[in-house]
């Protein structure tokens, strides 16, 4: 944008206005997109959250705080979702960081193949991939069944436990963690590591002082990409967790579909939105803070 040539003072007014018009015109679709599909729904949710339930369900205008009072009073699903999203993000990091590191630095010629293998599952429906885990972890041919046969135990149940949910979460969101990490690690200047070694640093010190700081932007981006959708995750806990944990997603389904109490659901949704906004604000702050020193345009 800054590279636009300065307009000579002699050009007529209309010609000078053209680039501005063009800019407006080019921005319009994106602006409309955000206004209609992002801002408007958020405003609707906010307005609804102060309303009351209509007699036959839905929304009736009003200005009450009952919905928030209830959302705060019944905060367990929120806390559970937060817990799950935090553990899920840590899980993705623990698996994603070594994987990204391996692909970026050690895979050599197999690099593109490995990346392709990471992408391919994305071409399959998310629901089908999640259902596939029912078989992989399941009681007959799956992991639980095999373990049962091996150990001779009476009954080993993996599906329906937090372990199954965690496996599903890490599996489902892993690529979103790996790609930003891969991009940063791939660009890492390898001579830095050599220098670090030459200067007598051990592996751990090199990782802590060189690799980790370099990977940090990717790590933050990946964590955000993973954390935010996990907060609202509904399908994986429902299918692999057998619906045994009552999360934000479940609470919203109960409010909107079973109680048909849109204002109550909206108040709860506002909490999710607040968490999302806070996380993204923290991210933006982080990006701006780092702008002068390093390139963080991973997103």
């Amino acid at each position: 944008m800054t590279t636009l040539p300065a307009t000579p003072p002699s050009t007529p007014r209309s010609a000078r206005r053209r680039p501005a018009l063009l800019t407006t015109f080019l921005i319009l679709p994106a602006a409309l997109w955000y206004a209609v599909l992002l801002v408007a729904p958020l405003v609707i949710v906010l307005v609804f959250s102060f309303g009351t339930r209509a007699r036959n369900g839905g929304y009736a205008p009003g200005f009450v705080f009952d919905n928030y009072a209830r959302a705060i009073q019944k905060s367990e699903p929120f806390v559970l979702s937060l817990e799950m999203a935090i553990f899920g993000t840590i899980g993705c990091l623990l698996v994603g960081l070594p994987l990204a590191y391996f692909i970026a630095t050690r895979a050599r010629r197999r690099k593109s193949l490995l990346i392709l293998l990471l992408v391919i599952p994305f071409w399959t429906s998310f629901l089908i991939r999640t259902y596939a885990w029912l078989l992989i972890l399941g009681p007959d041919l799956g992991l639980a069944g095999q373990l049962q046969r091996l150990t001779g135990a009476d009954r080993i149940q993996i599906l329906g436990t937090p372990i199954a949910v965690m496996i599903g979460l890490v599996y489902g969101y892993l690529p979103l963690m790996v790609f930003p990490l891969y991009v940063t690690l791939e660009r890492m200047d390898r001579t830095l590591i050599e220098a670090s070694k030459d200067l007598g640093a051990g592996r751990w010190a090199t990782f802590r002082q060189i690799t980790l700081p370099v990977a940090l932007p990717g790590l933050v981006t990946g964590s955000i990409l993973v954390f935010i959708p996990m907060m609202g995750e509904y399908v994986i806990p429902q299918i692999l967790g057998y619906g045994r944990t009552y999360l934000m997603g479940n609470a919203l389904v109960t409010d909107f579909l079973e109680a048909r109490n849109w204002p109550q659901g909206s108040a709860r949704a506002v909490f999710l939105i607040v968490i999302m906004v806070v996380t993204i604000a923290a991210y933006v702050w982080f990006v701006n803070r780092g702008r002068r020193t390093r390139d963080v345009s991973v997103l």
Partner: peptide, 20 residues
């Protein structure tokens, strides 16, 4: 249609939270 009954809803939520 009993979906407007808050007590039912509260019980339902508590029930779901206690599963497992």
């Amino acid at each position: 249609d009993t979906s407007d009954n808050q007590q039912r809803l509260d019980i339902w939520e508590e029930f779901k939270q206690n599963i497992g």
